[in-house]
Computed example of a mutant assay.
Amino acid sequence: MPYTVTPTALHGVLILEPKVFGDARGFFFESFNARDFAQCTGLDVQFVQDNHSKSAKGVLRGLHYQIAHPQGKLVRVTQGEVFDVAVDLRRSSPGFGKWVGVLLSAENNRQLWIPPGFAHGFLVTSDSAEFLYKTTDYWYPEHERSLLWNDPGIGIDWPLEGEPLLAAKDAAAVSLAVAPSFAWLPQR
């Protein structure tokens, strides 16, 4: 198998670790192969958009989601390290309001699959990080929402050193108690 797939504590969120072939010259791995992804995860998804960001240490992006046109995301880091977080916003799920966090880095080559119906964010823990992700739907700014990164009702244990650097929309985000959520989405 080209990936090792490990389920997380939240149903549907998966850690994927690709097979890396390396020697004295460097390394090679397939970061994505649709056939292998479907075979290893049992998911039949189509990605329509790739995004790439670079952020400095202490930048916290998120927790973002789209209330209409929800996106599944396959995320990874190509430079540096981040603490990546998914929060279940599917009211029909036993995991509603719970979170899972995973260290993703250029060193460990891990990827995280986050199904539609989750808020997503990450904190840069290295000097800088480049973050790439594929989405199953397009970005619709009118449908984007932000869940408060430090909502005590969720209790994410971010590995912070001081206060994070936030975008204005993330600083103005709302708590889970008032955030729009998903009445029902398949628990893939």
Rank of each mutant, 00 (worst) to 15 (best):
I114P: 09
P115F: 14
P115H: 13
P116L: 08
G117Q: 08
G117H: 11
F118T: 06
A119R: 07
H120S: 09
H120K: 07
H120N: 14
H120F: 10
G121V: 13
G121I: 09
F122S: 04
F122L: 07
F122K: 04
F122Y: 15
F122V: 05
L123W: 05
L123Q: 05
V124G: 02
V124Q: 00
T125A: 11
S126D: 08
S126A: 15
D127H: 07
D127M: 02
D127Q: 12
D127G: 03
D127S: 08
S128R: 12
A129N: 08
A129S: 13
A129R: 07
E130V: 04
E130W: 01
L132Q: 08
L132V: 13
L132F: 09
L132S: 06
K134L: 07
T135W: 05
T135R: 02
T136S: 15
D137N: 14
D137S: 15
Y138K: 01
Y138I: 02
Y138D: 02
W139F: 15
Y140E: 13
Y140W: 04
Y140R: 08
Y140Q: 10
P141N: 01
P141H: 00
P141M: 00
E142D: 15
E142N: 12
E142M: 03
H143W: 13
H143F: 15
E144G: 14
E144Y: 14
R145A: 12
R145E: 12
R145M: 14
R145L: 12
S146P: 01
S146W: 02
S146F: 06
S146D: 02
S146R: 02
S146N: 11
L147Y: 08
L148I: 01
L148A: 15
L148V: 01
L148Q: 10
W149H: 14
W149I: 11
W149C: 12
N150E: 10
N150V: 08
D151C: 00
P152Y: 13
P152C: 13
P152D: 12
G153H: 06
I154V: 15
I154G: 06
I154Y: 09
I154P: 05
I154S: 07
I154N: 10
I154K: 10
G155T: 03
I156V: 15
I156Y: 06
W158A: 07
P159S: 06
P159Y: 05
P159E: 09
P159V: 07
P159C: 03
G162I: 01
E163M: 12
E163R: 13
L165S: 09
L165N: 02
L166F: 11
A167H: 10
A167S: 12
A168H: 03
A168Y: 00
A168K: 14
A168C: 01
A168S: 11
K169G: 00
K169I: 01
D170A: 08
D170C: 06
D170G: 05
A171R: 13
A172H: 02
A172E: 09
A172F: 01
A173K: 03
A173T: 04
A173F: 07
A173C: 03
V174C: 15
V174L: 14
S175F: 04
L176K: 04
L176V: 02
L176Y: 03
L176H: 03
A177W: 02
A177R: 09
V178A: 12
V178Y: 07
